[in-house]
Design a protein around this nucleic acid. Structure first.
Length: 262
DNA sequence: CTAGATGTTAAGGT
DNA sequence: CACCTTAACATCTA
């Protein structure tokens, strides 16, 4: 479930397991997820290197290699990492596998293939080319408001647009707007400064709390929407019915009573 | 069997 | 011309 909290979780996973081990071999089991790089070139750039540190921007994870380059991982909708013994049977959906000299391996598993891996020289250049906006936890209140007040369309669509603010996807956009008591389909031009401030505050509250919960909705407080994200569930606040609706092409869960339209 | 699923993006519209 | 919306992508599961 890779939105910002999930990717942060994978960052910590690499930090605590996969750093500073020499990569003996990189297996590319499916080239479709390689972005702008050939299988051979990808493997060659990783051979003999170590992961030295990690940096996350939005849903993108940059893993620094011992030389001046980075491995970029994007998890798409279904990506995961699995760090295991080298002998352990490879997951059928593993697309790339890094074999370490420590006897361990790191598998990049993506069942639905929407995700990518590549090696890049500059994070700044990659950000520029791929239009990755400021991380949702890094943006200042001033910049957030300065950006949102000039946008149009549904407020949820804005939150999910990685160009302006990166890291928020379908699920957490719903959670943030539920906490802010704002209707996901509300047009931005109907909102005022107070609303923007409320959204900003709840972006931080929800994302930080979700990182603490290891991006596991079941570990979130019962007052959150995520544990009740299902058909016919009750709103934890007013006990009314949670409704669904398409906003920006994605299924949206919200409480019409707590999040009324203006 | 069909519909929908956490993300991104090309293509078309405003 | 920059922004906004929608459909399509590959595969699995309810």
């Amino acid at each position: 479930m890779p939105e910002l909290p999930d990717v942060e979780n994978y960052k910590q996973y690499i930090d605590s397991h996969a750093l500073n081990q020499k990569i003996e071999k990189t297996k590319v089991l499916n080239t479709k997820i390689l972005d702008n790089i050939s299988k051979n070139n990808f493997s060659k750039k990783l051979k003999g290197q170590k992961f030295t540190e990690t940096k996350r921007i939005g849903k993108n994870l940059f893993v620094k290699l011992s030389k001046k380059s980075y491995l970029l991982l994007h998890f798409g909708m279904t990506g995961q990492l699995e760090y295991t013994d080298i002998d352990k049977k490879t997951n059928p959906h593993t697309r790339v596998c890094f074999l370490f000299d420590s006897g361990k391996k790191l598998q990049f598993v993506i069942p639905r293939m929407l995700g990518k891996a590549t090696v890049i020289d500059s994070i700044e250049k990659y950000r520029d080319e791929n239009k990755i906006g400021t991380d949702a936890l890094e943006i200042s209140k001033k910049d957030f408001i300065g950006t949102i007040e000039n946008r149009r369309g549904a407020v949820k669509s804005f939150l999910m647009n990685q160009k302006y603010l990166s890291g928020i996807g379908n699920i957490y956009a719903d959670e943030i707007l539920f906490n802010a008591k704002i209707n996901p389909a509300e047009k931005i031009d109907k909102l005022n400064k107070k609303d923007f401030e409320k959204i900003y505050k709840n972006i931080h509250k929800v994302l930080k709390r979700s990182i603490e919960a290891n991006a596991d909705p079941a570990k979130l407080p019962g007052t959150y929407l995520l544990p009740h994200r299902g058909k016919g569930e009750k709103c934890p606040r007013c006990k009314g019915k949670i409704k669904t609706k398409k906003v920006g092409g994605r299924t949206t869960y919200f409480c019409p009573n707590c999040q009324p339209k203006k």
